[in-house]
Amino acid sequence: MSEETVSITIDGVEIEATPGQTILQAADAAGIYIPRLCAHPELEAFGACRVCTVKVNGRPQAACTTPVAKGMMVENDTSELLEYRRSLIEMLFVEGNHFCMFCERSGNCELQALAYRFGITAPRHDYQYPVRTLDGSHPEVFIDRNRCILCGRCVRASRDVDGKHVFDFVGRGHEKRIWIDAEARLADTPLKGEDRAVSVCPVGAILRKGTAYRDPIGRRAYDHRPIGSDIEACRPAEKKG
């Protein structure tokens, strides 16, 4: 062990982590995939979706917000946690209006990819069919709030990367939703099509116009390999299996 690193254990595998890293970052670096939706490597941790929940020394914690500490015993790939994450993903599906069969993000959507990874064929809960609005006013960007999962990536990216603060949350609890820094129309905000706030959306809620269905089926991000397999591919050979 070098002096700059601390040692933690994830599912019985000891890995080296850098102080200041979160559990999620340390796991990524070690090639261990912890499922996540709101977390994004370029954005400040937010802890909203709870899909990355792990057990740290027996207590549930969000891996994206919890810093590593020496000797942590982390549970990740356990049946209990997988079931917990699975339920969260199912709830996200029924809370919105997610029609993968014609959604242009199909195959590139992180929510859909997680559902496939977790083997979800149909949710156990009733669909809520909320009435949500669309905003097509912007020449380069289209918003379909039916598919928003409130991950807040656009909020953080617009504020911290684009320096614009175009998006933010309004409402509370069940009524919470993403809103824009304008009276009503996205066209009235300083948003640009190339802004990071647009491209970080993990689902089909914020869409760059003119890009729909450009990736043929078979060449989309998750057509052949499940989400997370890029991280798992980085796992050092001696720790695989």
Binding site: F102, G136, D144, K209
Partner: peptide, 10 residues
């Protein structure tokens, strides 16, 4: 209400 580019797929 749907965006026009969805029509061929929808």
């Amino acid at each position: 209400g749907r965006p026009y580019w969805e029509a061929p797929v929808l």
